[in-house]
Amino acid sequence: MPSGIIFGFLGPNGAGKTTTINLLLGLLEPTSGRAEVLGLDTRTQPDEVRTRTGALLEHSGVYEQLSAEDNLEFYGRIWRMPATERQARIKELLSHMGVWERRKERVGTWSKGMKQKLALARAMLHRPPLVFLDEPTAGLDVMAAAAVRDDLEALAGREGVTVFLTTHNMAEAERLCSQVAVIREGKLVAIGDPDDLRARSGGPRLEIVGRGFDENALGLLRARPEITAAEVHGDHLVIDLRQETDTAPLVSLMVSAGVQVEEVRRGKASLEEVFLTLMEEER
């Protein structure tokens, strides 16, 4: 995993994402095989791994009976940050998250989104080179999730930290991650750049919005060698292409077959479609 990127670790529920994080943090021992984090063996050097990383696990893990400031103060002390540096860093992070004015409030009175932001600040507090984030936006409403994503993107970009992000939100992975890996039932099924995965899995695609997609029109399309599949979903005709090709003749073909074309879009399969395809292939 290259440094300085947000690496998406994708998989359905129960695939082993959280277990992988626990293994990488040295909290669980592998039954077989080995893993290295920042050049450290997770089995023989778990303390060193945890010293050099930050984590936001399945739950935010914030102390609700303490204030936001005390939550960060505690973890700042744990990471042995000098008092002045600790105070400055706490102010910097809470200000960045827009909650500095509320630092004295008990976290128990905060919304789930705000707690998650605080947990994100806690994970980044000691400026670790690598941060593990286990589904940081899970269970948040749309606005809160977007706010957490914005903070994550801004902080990761500004601090140059490497982020290992698990999620089953494909849109989130598509937006944030420059590399992704997909696992299913504990096995890695794909890894790479999201664009590469889309290209590998789905290839280029043409989408026609309109009316009159009958069997005759579909038959004409399916007979062409550059087309791998053509399917109608309501008023959408989705055409999967074998490779990048001139699509104007295909649109003309549809018009000549009686299709009333309203809109034509070119694109690739979404990460979600790639993910679903991979899950299907594995079955």
């Binding site: 909290l27 696990l57 935010s60 893990g61 744990i78 947990a119």
Partner: peptide
Amino acid sequence: RHTLPTLLASRLS
């Protein structure tokens, strides 16, 4: 209160 895993994931012995 689900704070234990985060504490265990810290550098504390």
